[in-house]
Nucleic acid binder design. Structure first.
Ligand SMILES: [Mn+2]
Ligand SMILES: [Mn+2]
Ligand SMILES: [Mn+2]
Ligand SMILES: [Mn+2]
Lengths: 219, 219
DNA sequence: ATTAATTTTTAGTCTAGACTAAAAATTAAT
DNA sequence: ATTAATTTTTAGTCTAGACTAAAAATTAAT
């Protein structure tokens, strides 16, 4: 069944909210991320339920069905592959690609995305460290930690970010924090949970808890 | 001013119809190419005139303004550059790319299209021999002839096609007619204006007037 | 010059996807 | 257990962009 641009954006956002929780998703949480009003969300949820892409009980929240999830994953696959293209082939920085990928992810062609995948040499992660679902919609669970969870004096590797926003990514770039960087946690301030880090033996840098929370690492 | 998808498609089609004639364009001719009804076209023409992209007089037809033309050309530039990308980088055949480019041409990003242009090494023509407008919207007038205009026993080079449809392009491929082919007109039948051609000294092939009309050549 | 045929426009309608305001249901607070 | 606060839904409205049917203007035919 064909999907409209609006429907695709809803499914993608519901997927993101469903990830990491087994509770049903609230109308308001969707409204916030889509920048729509709750009433508009209710409207759309009824349509999506009608099409069999979500299970939805009035007042009781919503979840993706298997089909809904596979549609969401195919959009995420397209989004992330296009991001790789923009960075690897066109020379964009990682903080510049998200908005363009938001448009490209809606281009509809099965062959296109598979040819693109092959042209890019079947990348496993996008420029932000996010895993790319395969053709079958399978997505590896990478099991990364948030940097904010790492203990004092432990060393870890920067594997990804939990946020695509340009200002956040630009801040990381300025701090010399990029994918693959080795980070040692040399200080954690109990007052505000801010963190001092050594990157490859350089003199320590200082980041807030908010930043640490959005950095994904592997021990 | 922002352009919607529908508006962009109208402007592109009006551009195509304006090309090659200095008469104003009729509502019906637009309706035919957009696959809309004349009443819907009238509606849209009023909006486009309001925005200053066409000059429009009730019952008297329509033309693009300078601004309207530059919008149309920027869409055509995007369409053709994406077609080059699809053929050169992703390995598509020339008959497979038009529909996908119809989607890609609406992606909005100034930097994207210029980076793409550079990545493709600033191509001058697309896979169908159509010239690619530059950043400033300038498009070279190539002055090709239709193969149907070539005289008996003359030899010419296949430079482009006047039609993007898949079935037409597949026919050309089957007949071994591709860009750059050297063609000698060895027979013209006065009855139906069908043509026999020699391609590089091979044994002659036979094409209808309809096909000859849609092949563009240089003497 | 009139009339007929054709083209174009107007008037009114529909759908998707948004909105506001008010009603209903759920959840939190006493 | 009631009441208050919060969340969600319903009812009604709007806009873009399509449609049909009828009216108006233009063009072609007599
Ligand atoms: Mn992104
Ligand atoms: Mn990403
Ligand atoms: Mn094309
Ligand atoms: Mn083309």
């Amino acid at each position: 069944m064909a999907t409209s641009l609006a429907e695709e954006n809803y499914l993608k956002i519901i997927y993101r909210l469903c990830e990491g929780t087994k509770e049903d998703i609230s109308t308001n949480s969707i409204a916030e991320l889509t920048n729509n009003k709750a009433a508009s969300v209710t409207d759309m949820l009824q349509k999506l339920a009608e099409k069999g892409w979500v299970t939805y009980q009035k007042y009781q929240g919503v979840r993706l069905t298997k089909i809904g999830e596979s549609i969401a994953l195919s959009i995420i696959r397209k989004h992330r592959l296009w991001e790789v293209f923009l960075v690897e082939k066109l020379g964009y920085n990682w903080d510049e690609v998200h908005e363009i990928a938001e448009q490209l992810e809606h281009i509809e062609s099965e062959t296109l995305i598979n040819k693109l995948d092959s042209f890019l040499d079947f990348p496993k992660i996008d420029p932000h460290g996010d895993p790319i679902p395969n053709k079958e919609g399978e997505i590896p669970e990478l099991g990364y930690l948030h940097l904010s969870e790492v203990k004092l004096n432990e060393t870890c590797t920067l594997m990804g970010v939990a946020k695509d926003s340009a200002v956040f990514l630009q801040l990381l770039t300025k701090l010399n924090l990029s994918l693959g960087a080795r980070l040692e946690v040399v200080e954690i301030n109990t007052f505000d949970r801010s963190v001092s880090l050594k990157i490859a033996e350089e003199k320590p840098i200082f980041i807030s808890h908010e930043v640490a929370k959005n950095i994904l690492v592997k021990i």
